[in-house]
Design a protein around this nucleic acid. Structure first.
Length: 87
DNA sequence: ATCATGACTAATG
DNA sequence: CCATTAGCCATGA
C-alpha cells in the first residue's frame, strides 16, 4: 500500500506537533501547504496506515471540539489531557 | 475519468 | 446554541 505524498506530509506534520500541544485539521492543512485540504487531512488520518505510531490524537477540529478517533474519541481526549498536564 | 464518502470549516438563520 | 448549506480536497471503487 503505497502512501501518497499528501499523507506523508500530514503524518510528518502531525508528528512534529510538540507534546502537550494540539493542532487543528486546518492548521495541519496549512502547515503542509494545502490550506484548503483540511477535508483530505481528516481522510488521510482516518486511513492513517501508521495508526498507533503517528500522534493523530493531537489533531482536533478548529472550533476546539474533538474530531474523531479510530480508538474512540474518549481515548483521544484522555491522551490529550494527560499530555497536556505534565510537559 | 467519474461518483460517493469523510476524523472538516465557515457562514447563515 | 443548534441546524442547515455550500465549499474544497484526497482517496477508493
Amino acid at each position: 500500500m503505497n502512501i501518497t505524498p499528501f499523507q506523508q506530509k500530514v503524518y510528518d506534520f502531525v508528528q512534529t506537533i510538540p507534546k502537550g500541544e494540539t493542532a487543528t485539521y486546518k492548521n495541519v492543512a496549512v502547515g503542509i501547504g494545502h490550506p484548503k485540504a483540511y477535508r483530505a487531512v481528516g481522510s488521510a488520518l482516518n486511513r492513517n496506515p501508521f495508526i498507533g505510531r503517528v500522534s493523530c490524537h493531537r489533531v482536533i477540529k478548529s472550533n476546539g471540539q474533538i474530531g474523531g478517533y479510530v480508538l474512540g474519541t474518549n481515548k483521544k481526549l484522555e491522551l490529550l489531557k494527560k499530555e497536556s498536564l505534565n510537559s
